[in-house]
Structure formats: structure tokens, C-alpha cells
Write a protein that binds this DNA or RNA. Structure first.
Ligand code: MN
Ligand code: MN
Length: 212
RNA sequence: ACAU
DNA sequence: CGATGT
């Protein structure tokens, strides 16, 4: 059966949810709960009418053919005042891109690429460092940043991108970006907490590209 | 094994 | 099914 999406109009939290369990959590015992399942995320988003700020992000995502943001208010372990980053590769190795979104709103804050000749892990690394640099430049040294990549966390922690990818003329530009990222790490103390996005518990990281 |  | 990584 195709994965269903659930709209909760009235509940402990409202919005589009991606599991029946989550829908139940928001509606069971709530007086006058109003909710319904849909066969696609697109249909759910179309049916949902939330508060105006939320609606703007939903409509923006639809217009740009991106997955609709998920409302994480009901996940007590998720820091809403945070940035999430993720990378995607059309082949691995292959063209790589990465992006960052605010967890609270789903708003996309940056998107880079595709850049030729990368790997999934190089993308995750560049995404994480880009996010750290951006938060610092915005004067937000305490805002947490989420990644789902163990590899990227290790590479940043060690300030060492331990890729196995050979450097070639074709991916020269990408390797220059890697070097810039590592130089930034070596020049800047890590102040923002780097947090693990718990995909099994929470679903795909909000910065995910939705292609799997 | 775990994470992408 | 293939690849990148700890
Ligand atoms: Mn990822
Ligand atoms: Mn992803």
C-alpha cells in the first residue's frame, strides 16, 4: 500500500503528518479532533489549511515541487530553533548538491549545486560546514544544526574530510570547495551544537531532497 | 554492525 | 542492485 499522509486540522498539534501513529497521537482524546488520511503528500497539503505563516511555506514548497514541510511541534526531542542540512547525489560518485532548511518552518535557507564528481559524504560534509559558517555569520553561535550523516559528523569533529574519492580535473572545483570548508573549520571554533537527526524515530530530515 |  | 563512509 502506498504511504499515506494525514492532515490534522484540529488536534494537540495541527499540520501534515506522515504516519497514522503520529496522527493518532495528535487527535486521540482531543475534543472535536478533525483529521483525514490522503494517498499523497500533495493531496494532504492541498487539503490542509493551517496558520498563514505555515501556509506560506507549504505553498512555496508546492510551487517549487519540493516536499511539504512537516510540523515537528509534537516531537519533544526535536529542537525547533535549529537548522537541518542534507545532501543528495544523482549517482554515487556523481553530481552532488546540498541544502539547509529551518526545522521550525521548513524554509530553505541555502542550496548549492549540483557540482560534478562528488560523493554523498562530501555533500553531507559541505552541507554541514556551510550551515555552521552561515549560522556564525548570522550571529547565531548557539543555534543547533542537525545532520543525519555519521560520516559528516566525524569529518567535522576531526576537521579532516577522509574521502576515498580521487581528485581529477573534472572534480577540481569540488575539491576546492572541500579545501575552503576545511580551512573555515580550522579558523573557527565549533560553537553550534551538531546534533544527530534520528531518522528511524522522526522520519527523513527536513532538509532531505525526497528522491529516495 | 551502523549511518548515508 | 550499486556506491560512500565510521
Ligand atoms: Mn543525509
Ligand atoms: Mn536525504
Amino acid at each position: 500500500m502506498r504511504k499515506k499522509f494525514y492532515v490534522v486540522w484540529n488536534g494537540y498539534a495541527t499540520g501534515v503528518f506522515d504516519s497514522w501513529e503520529e496522527c493518532q497521537l495528535q487527535t486521540k482524546g482531543y475534543p472535536g479532533a478533525k483529521y483525514k488520511s490522503f494517498d499523497s503528500q500533495e493531496a494532504a497539503v492541498e487539503a490542509y489549511r493551517g496558520d498563514p505563516a505555515e501556509q506560506i511555506e507549504l505553498l512555496a514548497s508546492i510551487a517549487k515541487h519540493r516536499p511539504a514541510p512537516v510540523n515537528y511541534e509534537s516531537f519533544p526531542d526535536i529542537r525547533l530553533d535549529s537548522l537541518a542540512v542534507d545532501a543528495a547525489c544523482s549517482k554515487n560518485p556523481g553530481p552532488v548538491e546540498y541544502q539547509g532548511v529551518w526545522v521550525r518552518t521548513g524554509e530553505r535557507i541555502f542550496h548549492v549545486g549540483p557540482i560534478e564528481g562528488g560523493t554523498n559524504n562530501i555533500g553531507e560534509y559541505l552541507a554541514l560546514v556551510h550551515g555552521l559558517a552561515l549560522l556564525k555569520s548570522q550571529g547565531r553561535p548557539n543555534t543547533p544544526i542537525y545532520t543525519d550523516s555519521r560520516t559528516a559528523r566525524a569529518w567535522v569533529r576531526n576537521r579532516q574530510p577522509k574521502t576515498t574519492l580521487p581528485r581529477t580535473p573534472q572534480n577540481e572545483r569540488l575539491f576546492e570547495m572541500i579545501e575552503r570548508a576545511t580551512a573555515w573549520l580550522n579558523a573557527n571554533p565549533l560553537t553550534n551544537p551538531i546534533l544527530t537527526w534520528d531518522t528511524p524515530a522522526w522520519g527523513e530530515i527536513p532538509a532531505d531532497f525526497g528522491r529516495k
